[in-house]
Design a binder for these strands. Structure first.
Lengths: 335, 335
DNA sequence: CAGAAAAATTTACGCGCGTTAAAAAACTGT
DNA sequence: ACAGTTTTTTAACGCGCGTAAATTTTTCTG
């Protein structure tokens, strides 16, 4: 920057000032600096720069698993909002590993982020240390909540969304059985399980569970194997199956097809299958998956804007806020 | 670090030395430092640290689109290799935007990476400026080649893999038509098109193309719409369709199902569909997708190790090397 | 125990910047 | 052309570290 300043005939502090806000310097000097940029292609080192700024423009985004299109999509939305607000997103995936999650948070400290948007891994997260991080860095959680961590939480209203789809399924056919992992790593899964049970109870019906074994992030495979066995044993308690999430539904549909069970609501269909989330691939399953959409855009926008408000100091000191967005029924062919 | 050194009763340069290589200090001082780490949880700031190291341990990884599970999966493999080698991966996705691709490369400069692994976006990439970057930073390309850019390229042998699947399809039924985007952004698509034409020619057959319109990264949607129309018009030149990649195949299968065309090779099937890549979701389509697998692990390993060799100076000055891995036929139910 | 070798300390500079305060220069209106 | 108001420059310090050379301390060898 020293050399660049000399080359552009301006002092270094002025150049620094320019990069901090081009409008803070006189038009004539701005022109000189910009001409020099054109000539030499100089740009300040963002990391050296962040070392001294009192407030950086860095926003960390941490998701549990980038190879899951749900999180990839969510991250994509959030990054767009963050960039539009003039901040700099740093996206980190934790590969489904709680240790990596902590490592990601710790490494974020080094860039002194203005704030962090964190989708925790869930039950496997080290809640204690996540809370400790949130105490130091302004953080907003999304998708998955950890009690007492972060300044706010933005997610989906599982009660409402599960109610919605159970409603739809009951209205259009047999009451659904609930297909899920026996020991899900995600608190949302627990909430959905309970929401399902409650929805059934409201109708005076006994909840029916199909629980499959498995752990890790290979949900489709877990569901595929589990469904294959359940269908093989003819152990389905209902001809309608509500899967705890779309990735499980994708595996389930694949298994049903494999077994020759026609899925859908038309005549000749043996089974109805529904999911939850409106996963990017849900529209291309066979048949196309009926599901309840999480509002990716709204969750992304709200969580990012909540964080930005906190950073800007517009809404300090208020109590921890929880925002739950309603799901939207996406009626396709599978149920 | 100053304070930490004082607290642990050791000088700062020694602490610095310790973090550079714990074995370079005496056992007794190592113990004192580690005790202090235990007590205070100190860790050096990775960015400040990289500012002065002559050689950093940073490896940049840039892929065109993280929301595409193919790249997410590839990145996952590469990160694992890089970490295992004791380096620090920095993963950046370009959101399908050439400008973002350049921005990612430029921002990588700021962390002075030891090297970069780049999967270029393809024809839309700014080849000139990518080459300029590669001239400054040791770079290995993977998945998609740009002539003259980087020290090496690692990818798939499209000739071999397309030959393999065409072979399989011809041996087990009708010769395939080739389903693709009319103007693909990816050079691999062009190679596959040519490989298909060549494979057909070798058999004395006329190549048959089904080309759909569309641009961007929403391949499934493009294929879905295109296939819907092609099937609707009964414009399929063959009862066997080879898709240029699995994402197109996923869309195609969805459209075929929608139209009530049974896909597979058994009796009662109207259509066979095959893909290319062994996309993470290819095993869960209905029917499960026959495809030719790219060797994710091998490509990841080879590209990372080629880069690391270059960094370590084991193999400088040699000519630009191109490594193509063979595809592996994955015979599932769809063809 | 002396002497040699190894390790640690001291001192100092550098990376690429932000930031501040005081001094100098460049503009504004008249 | 002048006082008054921006803007810029100068000078200096700081961030959190790596690194190098010279010096001192510790440890090892016999």
């Amino acid at each position: 920057m020293e050399d660049f300043a000399a080359a552009s005939g301006v002092s270094r502090p002025t150049v620094s000032k320019y990069f901090n806000d081009p409008n803070s310097v006189r038009k004539s000097t701005r022109a000189r600096i910009e001409a020099a940029i054109e000539r030499f292609g100089y740009r300040p080192n963002i990391y050296a720069l962040n070392q001294n700024r009192k407030l950086t423009k860095n926003i960390g985004i941490v998701v549990p698993y980038l190879a899951d299109p749900f999180f990839a999509e969510m991250a994509r939305h959030i990054e767009a909002v963050v960039i539009a607000a003039g901040y700099r997103p740093i996206l980190l995936g934790s590969h489904g590993d709680p240790a990596q999650e902590l490592e990601n948070l710790e490494s974020l400290r080094d860039i002194r982020p203005a704030g962090v948007l964190l989708a925790p891994m869930g039950r496997r997260s080290d809640a204690e240390r996540v809370r400790a991080f949130c105490a130091d860095v302004t953080t907003v959680l999304f998708d998955c909540d950890i009690a007492g961590a972060g300044e706010a939480f933005v997610g989906s209203d599982n009660d409402q969304s599960i109610g919605l789809i159970v409603d739809h399924l009951c209205r259009t056919g047999t009451a659904p059985a609930f297909f899920e992992m026996r020991e899900p790593a995600n608190p949302n899964a627990i909430k959905r399980r309970n929401a399902y049970a409650a929805a059934m109870s409201r109708r005076g019906l006994e909840p029916m569970f199909i629980q499959v074994e498995g752990s890790g992030w290979d949900f489709e495979e877990i569901a595929f194997r589990g469904a294959l066995r359940a269908i093989g044993r003819r152990a389905l308690p209902s001809d309608t199956v509500l899967c705890s999430n779309d990735r499980l539904a994708i595996g389930f549909l694949s298994a049903a097809y494999e077994r020759g069970w026609r899925v859908g609501r038309g005549p000749g269909c043996a089974l109805r299958v529904a999911g939850h989330d409106d996963h990017p691939f849900a529209r291309y399953t066979c048949p196309r998956l009926t599901t309840v959409a999480q509002d990716y855009a709204a969750i992304a926008r709200r969580s990012a804007e909540t964080l930005l408000d906190l950073i800007r100091g517009d809404s300090r000191a208020t109590a921890r806020e929880t925002t739950l967005f309603r799901g939207r029924l996406v009626e396709r062919a599978s149920a």
